[in-house]
């Protein structure tokens, strides 16, 4: 656990305490504090209100605040745990925690299932996957004939939709990602293992002395 100077406490006023967040995640207190520097940078990039809105999120992802993107919208909605239309610091840290190398495979599988269950029906449906595939093709300016897209969808559902009901349920998804582990590559950010060395620019503000635990 880390001790926390009053100046740093002021720094975090109005935000969840990093010692509490560290106790609930795979991050150390100093890593939570480093994430706070990142959070401050993103949350003040358009409106300096201590919250990340969708424009700021898009700006951070694409360096373009006006770039609407299906996937960015979905990730934003999943990070916006309290459904306020903005991401606060606690949501930011807890959501990024799933991307930590030490986070459980189950948490990563669950997050990725919710990510692709665009309509929140509890199933990943063929139409949703087609919508995402077309969005990816547009984003990367790749062109595929419609029957090629249908062939890819056929093959995907042939592999994933074991009970052939036309949609992928949570169990089928878990089995599918076990057979295709590369699908969870997006769910791990290796440098979250030690942000304080990978992002030294965030450390100089650090005011939390980690007491050896």
């Amino acid at each position: 656990m880390g001790c926390f100077h009053s100046t740093a406490a002021r720094e975090f006023s109005g935000h969840e305490n990093p010692v509490k967040l560290a106790s609930e995640t795979a991050f150390s207190v100093s890593e939570v504090e480093a994430l706070f520097e990142l959070f401050k940078r993103i949350s003040s990039s358009v409106v300096d209100d201590g919250l990340i809105n969708k424009e700021e999120f898009q700006l951070a992802l694409f360096q373009n605040r006006k770039k609407e993107n299906l996937f960015a919208n979905r990730i934003f909605d999943l990070f916006d745990v309290k459904r306020k239309g903005v991401i606060d610091f606690g949501d930011f840290v807890r959501s990024l925690n799933v991307f930590h190398p030490n986070a459980s495979l189950e948490d990563k599988t669950d997050f990725s299932f919710r990510l692709y269950d665009m309509d929140c029906t509890g199933f990943i449906e063929r139409q949703e996957v087609k919508q995402m595939l077309i969005a990816l093709l547009c984003e990367s300016e790749m062109k595929l004939a419609d029957d090629t897209i249908e062939m890819i969808l056929d093959q995907t559902f042939n592999d994933a939709d074991v009970d052939r009901d036309g949609k992928i349920d949570k169990t089928e998804w878990s089995d599918f990602v076990i057979k295709n582990p590369s699908l969870l590559k997006i769910m791990t950010l290796p440098y979250l293992r030690d942000i304080t060395t990978t992002f030294p620019s965030f450390v100089f503000n650090s005011e939390v002395d980690e007491i050896a635990t």
Partner: peptide
Amino acid sequence: QPTSMNAFELISMSRALDLGNLFEE
């Protein structure tokens, strides 16, 4: 070759799904 990939392999190539971009200056 896209046709040999499953849809999710293609979808996961989206820039928006690489949250490492959040950390870029």
